[in-house]
């Protein structure tokens, strides 16, 4: 038994190192005082300096932009999870005309390449009066995230045994109560995955954000990070520092969410 544990840990450590290794170059570039791309054989900076981070934090509106990013990603997560929970539940539990078409439609929305979507999306957001506002981004991001969220949650709901809901119904609980009190708590793992996905959809996006927002204090953080890329050269040190700063909240969010990735269904939960 102990040997098996050792093997598992050895394997996991190896995988973790392999996973982290390419990212270490980003760390190395962030902590080097240089702005050139690190092409050295190993990601070990010769001189360590915090200049890149200092430059980054002293950029105008930096913390405001961090706040914007958190707001946009947070709202996207909230809206994406809320609407997809209800929709996924309907798709999983109710049989209604248009159900298959609806599910397929969700999938279909992901199929058209996004390269040409910029102009019509801009026109739409403009006509809704949401240019330059976080709300416009939240709207676009949550619609981008919803198809996966619905499909993922629907897949999970499908695995939940209906007996629980049926017995609750027999105890006199309304459909909404069943959904809220029984289905949602049982689906915590899938909701956590969905939330992380929604958060990341909104968090790293910069093209739409750079197009829809026209005030530096309204920018989200990835826009600022991307502005270190120039026509002929890129300030890689600043970019890497920004990339690290951008990734940390993701890890924090995941760390917070991952405790929900523990058994939604208990052994005694299923009758039978």
């Amino acid at each position: 038994m102990r040997l098996r544990d050792l093997v598992v840990h050895a394997g996991l450590v190896a995988t973790s190192l392999l996973t982290l290794f390419p990212a270490l170059w980003v760390v190395s570039m962030a902590f080097r005082p240089s702005q050139s791309f690190d092409t050295s054989l190993l990601p070990i900076p010769e001189v360590i300096s915090l200049d890149n981070f200092r430059d980054l934090f002293s950029r105008p509106h930096f913390f405001r932009q961090l706040g914007n990013s958190l707001l946009v990603a947070g709202l996207t997560t909230a809206i994406g999870v809320m609407f997809s929970c209800t929709a996924a539940y309907a798709f999983s539990r109710f049989r209604f005309p248009g159900r298959r078409a609806g599910l397929l439609a969700l999938l279909v929305t992901q199929m058209f390449p996004g390269t040409l979507m910029l102009i019509p999306l801009y026109a739409l957001i403009e006509s809704l009066g949401l240019l330059n506002r976080s709300a416009g981004l939240v709207l676009v991001y949550s619609t981008t995230a919803i198809p996966f969220c619905v499909w993922n949650l629907k897949g999970y709901f499908d695995t939940l045994p209906r007996e629980l809901e049926e017995s609750a119904m027999m105890d006199g609980a309304g459909p909404f109560v069943v959904f809220w009190r029984i289905v949602l708590p049982l689906s915590r793992p899938a909701i956590a995955v969905t939330a992380l996905f929604s958060f990341l959809t909104a968090w790293n996006e910069f093209i739409l954000a750079a197009t829809f927002l026209s005030e530096e204090q309204a920018y989200t953080l990835p826009v600022t990070v991307q502005s270190f890329v120039g026509a002929f050269s890129t300030e890689w040190g600043h970019f890497a520092a920004g990339a690290l700063v951008v990734s940390l909240p993701v890890m924090a969010v995941f760390f917070a969410l991952q405790r929900h990735l523990v058994g939604g269904l208990t052994a005694g939960g299923v009758k039978g």
């Binding site: 910029l118 102009i119 801009y122 026109a123 403009e126 240019l131 910069f206 093209i207 750079a210 197009t211 026209s214 005030e215 530096e216 826009v223 991307q226 502005s227 890329v229 120039g230 026509a231």
Partner: peptide, 25 residues
């Protein structure tokens, strides 16, 4: 005078959608 720094890669497309709709700089 309000200066807005736009990422270089995004600037031409942003101008292309914003200017004809009267939202350009």
């Amino acid at each position: 005078v309000v200066l807005v720094a736009v990422p270089h890669d995004a600037l031409p497309d942003k101008l292309g959608v914003a200017i004809p709709r009267g939202n350009g700089p």
